[in-house]
Design a protein around this nucleic acid. Sequence first.
RNA 1: GCGGGCAUAACUCAGCGGUAGAGUGCCACCUUCACACGGUGGAAGUCGCAGGUUCGAAUCCUGCUGCCCGCACCA
Length: 945
Amino acid sequence: MAPSDFTRPYDPREVEPKWREKTLASSWFHAVDGVSPAFTLAIPPPNVTGSLHMGHALTITIEDAIIRHARMRGLNTLYIPGIDHAGIATQVVVERQLKLEGKTRHDLGRDAFIERVWQWKGESGGRIFEQQKVLGTSLDWARAKFTMDADMSRAVREAFVRLYEEGLIYRANRLVNWSIGAQSVISDLEVVREEPDPAKPNAELFSFAYALEDGSGEIVVATTRPETMVGDTAIAVHPDDARYQHLVGRFVTHPFVKRRIPIIADGVLADPTKGTGAVKVTPAHDFNDYEAGRRNGLEMINILNLDGTLNAEGGPFAGMERFAAREAVKKALEAAGLARGSQPHAIAYARCQRTDSILEPLLLPQWYVKMQPLAEPALAAVKDGRITFTPEEWTKTYDHWMSNIQDWCISRQLWWGHQIPAWYCDACEAVTVSRDDVTACSGCGSAKVRRDEDVLDTWFSSALWPFATLGWPEETPALKTFYPTSVMETGFDIIFFWVARMIMMGMHFLGEVPFKRVLLHGMVCDETGSKMSKVKGNVIDPLDLVNGATLREIVEHASRGVPYAQAQKNFAAAYPSTSNLKEGFPAYGADAVRFYLASHPPQSKKINLNLSRLQGYRDFCNKIWNATRFALTHIADVGPRPTGPFPRPESVAERWIVSRLAHTVSAVNQAVEDFRLDEATAAVYQFFWYELCDWFLELSKPVFESGSEAARASYKLTLAHCLETSHRLLHPFMPHLTEECWAHLPENIRRRRSDGGLPEVLALAPFPGEGEGHRDVEVEAQMEALQAAIEAVRRTCAELGIKPGANLAVTFRSADRRKVETLEQYSAAVRRLTRARETAVEHVSGEVARPRGVGYAVSHGIEVLIPLAGLIDPGAEGQRLEKDIAKVKKEADAIAKRLDNKDFLARAPADVVEKDRARVAELRDRAERLAAAVAVLGEVGSSQI
RNA sequence: GCGGGCAUAACUCAGCGGUAGAGUGCCACCUUCACACGGUGGAAGUCGCAGGUUCGAAUCCUGCUGCCCGCACCA
């Protein structure tokens, strides 16, 4: 391929699809069993119902960068892809489809329904894999797993049976969170509570009276759920509440159902300061009442059907939907003269995370995992550092949750999922839990056994992910090679749902941590900081950023089920910067999106999408492209790259760039090791643009144009080396662009593997380490002086309003022989970069007369003299210099003041004091020289002050 | 109520004890033969407020204010 193949500007649409195809046709990212050291990362499996969102893009970006870095460092690297069957979400999707056909899952029956879900999964369940590929992942697709695969199901069953046999799984009849929307139980973690705002009542606190059975009076209670009163089995008062002591032990009569209800004393439930101090007790429908019921041996009466209607216990209200029943009960109480008023009230509704329906506490037998014994080793593993969290602050959150852990309800009344392997006997009481399907009761041998209808919480299978994906419970070579995995990387919002449970299960079943490090990232939000949601209409599809999209497409992807005009309004509110976005998004490309996402520090809880920054990284891609294109015009015939460490070049510029390269390489490696991808991307961005392109490339141009043969050869090698090393440094963040650029480089310059072989592609090349350069602090100082001299000329001209292209003849003076030599050596480059017609360099010592009427600057021990005659009025220079003098003096005075402080001298470290002394001296010297320059400016100049 | 976090340039965010930084935006200039998705120069911050520790604080400590996020509770 020739440099002319480079289109301009860089167009990711030309390059990225090509490398995606090559990758998928290759075996570059297949990990091999049995080779160590290994590096493993199992992707957090996205929902099978899902399509790629910014959170997935962030996950993949971070993980793939870490994975690619590890792979290039020579580790046997495995990045495991996968999809989660997502019980409730998937079942809801398919049920919605059925509804369009006028059917329910019950019309189909369980087997046919499950068949139908699999069919759906086959058609649209793999979409997210395709979307992940667009981002340039280096996943090992041959090892992709779906949590409902046969081997995964086997692992789930094995885990369940073992826990049961160990007494860590049990069945109990307890109050659970019932989601009427999902028609299932959900776990504590899946309950969301909206914070109540007392200023905005969202409910009604309704008071009513129970009449004492002897007709001697009444007792008033209040509730936000009047319909539950048909399930009341007690009224509780505080034992010390003088108002009610005489009533404890007596009874009231229920107005609607024939029941005597005791008035009991319960100091836990009843709070004398709240309401009337008397509280109705409905043990089967309230968590606190349930505890009170257990304490006091109360009857527990379930009044609800699973669909939210009142059952036969509802008396006159039986059959009514719960909210209709609420109104009916209120009316009936009023009619009976028992209503005692109501007031607006703010309460925290408990809702189902998936369906948003208000949850009902219900008494139902369910399967639970006993968490305490599992939590203890998992807590210890984090405490003693076998597992570390990044950012560290999550350790506390983890400790706190794990130390107060509740048993985990794992039954779900769904059809889609791993059916619980428990069989009940109709002939006896025995429960049979088995690895194999059961035909006879383990207790009495009866064939009348029924399997538990329920499936397991999806998170139960997720908890086995790091080892089930590797073949557990089999002792597979993969398991031996890749477990424990190296890193678990995911959003902080599932630290309890997932991370904590994986740690518990991994330690329990394998006796070893499932991963050594946990990296938790934040949430990608819109420009205003709001969480992305289709309801808010502020979702941005990462593929629209990658491929480009029209405004209409963007807006349509942002929300669901809203008219376009409204959707546009919602979108504009969430992304104020897009007000001028007529054309939609350009194709930023996967590489720019990745680099952008990687540029955020892990402690950012929120990443507010910033399109201008994204654009900045697209520009960076273009910069890399063009720099490579330019370099290729010079390095096509570069000599062979020496094996081993890069040899130390001769010239200042080369030694400088190689020193900066060494610095960048170590900064990037350290940053990736620390999971500070933001620092890694910043370091390589800084190096490539501001050091390699802005300076080294510019300094090398005159050499390529008119340097000696030897100099040209040396600069070619250095340039090619820096460029090739940059491609390798950038590759984990920008896989497509760097592959393309690297493929254009002459073979001579590509870094070989340690065995001497030429890597097939950049992804398989060694990551830069020691030996790519050498730090040279001295040459860096020399280079800084050269840069400062050039910048001094530019600044002086700019501040004086001297047009570029003016006829400049600049003289540099220094007492430092090396600086003089450097300036002389680079005089052609200096002319080019300052646009001066001619330059002269003088080595001076002691006081030297200054010419009159010159623009003057001094920095890093180099004086800059620019004759102004014929260019501008020297008066302007006088003003400019005076301003400069004032600034320098102010700075010098500030430091001098510190140096006058005896305590500072006595207590500050010697090197700090020394640095300040040198700095004051330098500043004073500059001030003197500037003052002298003013003095010789000429008549006009000196009178301007 | 318990716990965690955040407040730095117009915007988005680094820095977390020794001269206030980056990207974007802004202003001025430049169509210099890799790149105008470019180059050069510039302006811009009493680092939320008040105390304290220290020779020295954006950085450590305490309090306050304002936001955010968990967990618990809510007749």
